[in-house]
Design a protein around this nucleic acid. Structure first.
Length: 154
DNA sequence: GCCAACGTTGGC
DNA sequence: GCCAACGTTGGC
């Protein structure tokens, strides 16, 4: 089982939305490195830290779980969608998505600043300068530590 | 809303 | 295949 961090802009889709819906399809990933993580490495049961970006403060707000492995992101085939990409076709899909289920909400958000300042989290990808990757692998120890900071124990 | 950092595109 | 121009991300 692997551990991941997935970014979302809460103005577009928040942990609240995920809690309300229970499960969502994580469409719109349009970066090759992030796509490859989803397509090649994400498995059902993998654990996810949900990260709110583009908001002040940014940070991790809760947990999710992968409940369906990668399948074609059909929003890429829809001209009406903002995720439309004419290079992707049903015969030869270019972009993929997974399904993510809500697991838990942190009782307190773990902010990016907190992550950067914590000696236990040195080297974590999300704290690296200029890290724009929207899907990142996590170390299990970091995942557990952040969950604890967020007020969850396992 | 600004803008630095970074990924992608396309001319050559 | 280099690299300048361009578009996007995302912290602040």
């Amino acid at each position: 089982m692997a551990y991941w961090l997935m970014k979302t802009e809460p103005s577009a889709y928040s942990l609240d939305d995920l809690e309300r819906e229970g499960v969502t399809h994580w469409e719109g990933v349009r970066n090759y490195q992030a796509r490859n993580f989803m397509r090649d490495d994400m498995k059902v049961g993998d654990a996810v830290l949900v990260y709110h970006s583009n908001i002040n403060p940014a940070g991790i707000v809760g947990l999710g779980r992968i409940v369906r492995e990668a399948y074609p992101d059909h929003f890429a085939w829809n001209r009406e969608s903002k995720y439309f990409d004419e290079r992707s076709t049903p015969a030869k899909p270019l972009w993929f998505m997974v399904d993510v289920a809500f697991v838990a909400r942190f009782s307190k958000m773990v902010t990016l600043q907190q992550i950067k300042e914590d000696p236990a989290l040195v080297g974590i990808m999300v704290a690296k300068r200029g890290s724009r990757l929207s899907i990142q692998p996590m170390e299990e120890a970091h995942f557990r530590y952040i969950s604890k900071l967020g007020g969850l124990s396992e």
